[in-house]
């Protein structure tokens, strides 16, 4: 349970940075931290203390295997989600650089030509 609480507070840290900070790069870092927290949450779902890799070999008993092996599915999900996160992060950074070229600032409050 402690692990889940810590994980959730990590997510809150990311959300704080995303909502409160004005600097674009800090907002991007906020998204990145939130993403780590969510990925970590997925890993925690399948986590078992002193678990083994989920590969069934011939000399293994099925009942103990089910008890000790970690759940492999969340790990596969996290791999996919990390790749997606990489794509999002790259696009965010690329747009941030272009924004700096156009506006000459990283302050989100000064980037406000669109409104209404």
């Amino acid at each position: 349970m402690t692990l889940y609480m810590l994980n959730f507070s990590l997510m809150m840290v990311g959300m704080y940075a995303l909502i409160v900070k004005r600097h674009i790069v800090k907002k991007i870092l906020g998204i990145a931290i939130m993403e780590y927290a969510v990925n970590h949450f997925l890993i925690l779902i399948g986590f078992k203390k002193a678990g083994v890799a989920p590969i069934l070999t011939k000399d293994m008993d099925l009942a103990t295997f089910i008890q000790t092996a970690v759940d492999p599915l969340p790990q596969a999900l996290v791999l996919t989600s990390i790749v997606i996160g990489l794509g999002t992060l790259a696009l965010m950074v690329a747009i941030a650089i272009r924004l700096y070229e156009r506006y000459g600032t990283f302050d989100m409050h000064e980037i406000n030509r669109l409104r209404g």
Binding site: L18, I31, I95, L99, Y103, I111, N112, R113, L114
Partner: peptide
């Protein structure tokens, strides 16, 4: 400038 701003807001 405006396209990038809209895109960034949408992206975040």
């Amino acid at each position: 400038a405006e396209e990038l701003e809209a895109s960034f807001k949408y992206l975040i």
